[in-house]
Amino acid sequence: MTGPSKRRGRPEPMQVVKGRRDRALRALVDGVPWIAFLGIRFERHGDELTAVMPYQEKLIGNPMLPALHGGATAGFLETAAIIELSWSTLWEDVESGAIDLNDPAVLEGLKFPKTIDFTVDYLRTGLPRDAYARARVTRSGRRYASVHVEAWQDNRARPFAQATGHFLMPST
């Protein structure tokens, strides 16, 4: 209970809090070649993450329609799920200051959960424009976790794909 946010008294300056959270998010996302390859970035509001995959011509799977490739959609959903799961696992330790992501040894020790299985429902055609996704950890145990994720484009209420996955948590 000695962490920065748990200290009673004057709250920390907003920029300090934001800086710490943004650093934690960058520690997870930056340096993953696949995330850069798909051009995915994460927007954060408090602890809520939204994955954004800006449209690129290389993501097309059907040039006639045109439509996003199912594989691009699946990769986007799985990435959003893994980052959300890692993020929600780290959150408390980042907030309490129990781990310091400025420490290279901590960064080096970060491990992603491993996907056991992943099931994608393709609900409508993925259009050639930006896509967004939000994941929810429906159950997170010591060894296994279950995550649901939804992706949409223009209209949040009309997802174009959703997925459920099971993950093996990294041993600590």
Binding site: P33, E78, L110, K111, F112
Partner: peptide
């Protein structure tokens, strides 16, 4: 370019699904 975990060099699952 398609590595999902830079610490292991393993391809991302999304590559295999694609």
């Amino acid at each position: 370019q398609l590595v999902g975990d830079p610490r292991t060099g393993v391809l991302h699952g999304g590559v295999v699904s694609a």
